[in-house]
Nucleic acid binder design. Structure first.
Lengths: 153, 153
DNA sequence: CTGTCAACATTGGCCGTCCCAACGGTATCA
DNA sequence: TGATACCGTTGGGACGGCCAATGTTGACAG
């Protein structure tokens, strides 16, 4: 006859199994590891993303870079300023379209990237330590499919 | 005899398959969905985490809440202030240990939580939309194991 | 009993990621 | 030619995460 007792009558909050919770925690973990690795090099995520995109796809406009790296245009500006100040990239007006800048990675940028690569690999390894090779592939596959579904402007 | 050509000679940067990259993107996606759901209720992640922890484990000290929700003690203070101002929780000194406060969820807090639950479920569904039920379980399992390995203070 | 050490709540501050609105300049195309 | 879309840039804000320092209180060893 008594109403539900005040203690733990709800089974609804299985937060520990909520994917959004797990992803949030995994990101925090991953970000902590990355910050540690990047920090030593005086670099942060945006810098690496931009350099890596330049390395992978060649010179590009800032808008293109932003799309490829999922960085907002305005943040691309700031990050590129910092990279340019260190001589890691070069900004030059696009002769074919005077709205655009052409961003080119400089030798120092490539060098920075190569210095970062092993650090990054180490972070991946540490993050995925508990998983077998097959499971790592699984995880990558599942996350990739999640993101394909993300309809971003 | 020529050195490596300047164009795309590097296969090292498979950023698109880097788990840290995928997790970063997945978090951004998830965070966007959550912000949308929470925003309508004038709540953010910290609020929900704290309320859910209170609902699930009963009254607790602020330090305990922080540990359970992975929120820094100092941020717990601020978030609880906001929750208390809305009458969703109650703060009272612990008679058994005068260093501690005992935080109790109020009926309005439980109500808020119940209002949030379906929204949260919807977010999980949207996020996991591309995955089958089995794959969702897989993903949850893999991420859970990753996090067990995270040695946090 | 006393001194040391640990835990607690709180304040104040910082950084990194993400997102938005608005601006002037430029290209595109009807 | 005029409307529309894109570009780089500026400025601002929200949010999550983290750290250092302070004063109070508890626990525990000597």
């Amino acid at each position: 006859m008594n109403p539900a007792p005040p203690t733990a009558d709800a089974t609804f909050s299985r937060i520990l199994e909520m994917p959004t919770w797990l992803i949030t925690r995994a990101y925090a973990y991953s970000h902590r590891l990355l910050a540690e690795g990047f920090g030593a090099a005086g670099v942060r995520g945006y810098h690496f993303r931009l350099l890596a995109a330049l390395e992978e796809f060649g010179p590009a406009s800032q808008a293109d870079l932003g799309r490829r790296t999922s960085i907002d245009r305005s943040d691309v500006v700031a990050a590129l300023n910092e990279l340019a100040a260190r001589g890691l990239i070069q900004r030059s007006p696009d002769p074919d379209d005077r709205r655009r800048n052409v961003i080119t990675i400089m030798p120092a940028g490539t060098k920075q990237l190569r210095a970062l690569a092993p650090i990054l690999d180490g972070v991946q390894d540490q993050l995925l330590a508990p998983l077998s090779a097959a499971e790592r592939t699984q995880l990558v596959g599942l996350l990739t499919r999640l993101l394909e579904h993300d309809a971003q402007p």
